[in-house]
């Protein structure tokens, strides 16, 4: 079980590499430029939803980027939510 944090746009190699190793039981938190991958109807959000990982987005970052139309599988979390995820997942992989 790995907690992935993605702070890079969907066009980046970081996004591609992250998606390629995400597995069932993993979680992904979108932050910074990573939030654009949550936009409903985009290729990136469809790609994310095809993984078996749980998907989260930092609410403040999404609002700052104007990303309000989220794909259905993506849950909004605040900083406490991120800390809670790190309590659950023993390992984090930061993609940026």
């Amino acid at each position: 079980m790995i907690l992935h944090t993605l702070n890079a746009s969907p066009s980046s190699a970081a996004f591609t590499d992250c998606v390629s190793i995400m597995a069932k039981g993993d979680a992904l938190v979108l932050m910074g430029d990573g939030v654009y991958a949550a936009l409903a109807g985009t290729k990136a959000s469809k790609t994310l939803q095809q993984t078996d990982a749980s998907l989260y987005i930092m609410t403040a970052d999404a609002l700052a980027a104007g990303v309000t139309n989220l794909a259905a599988a993506v849950s909004r979390i605040d900083m406490e939510g991120l800390v809670t995820l790190t309590e659950t997942f023993p390992r984090q992989q930061a993609w940026y």
């Binding site: 932050m31 930092m58 991120l82």
Partner: peptide, 19 residues
């Protein structure tokens, strides 16, 4: 970018949760 600031906010939140 905001990563350094986000890290500081995360640190505040971690301590607030008793860690």
């Amino acid at each position: 970018g905001h990563s350094s600031r986000r890290a500081a906010q995360f640190a505040h939140c971690v301590t607030a949760r008793g860690h």
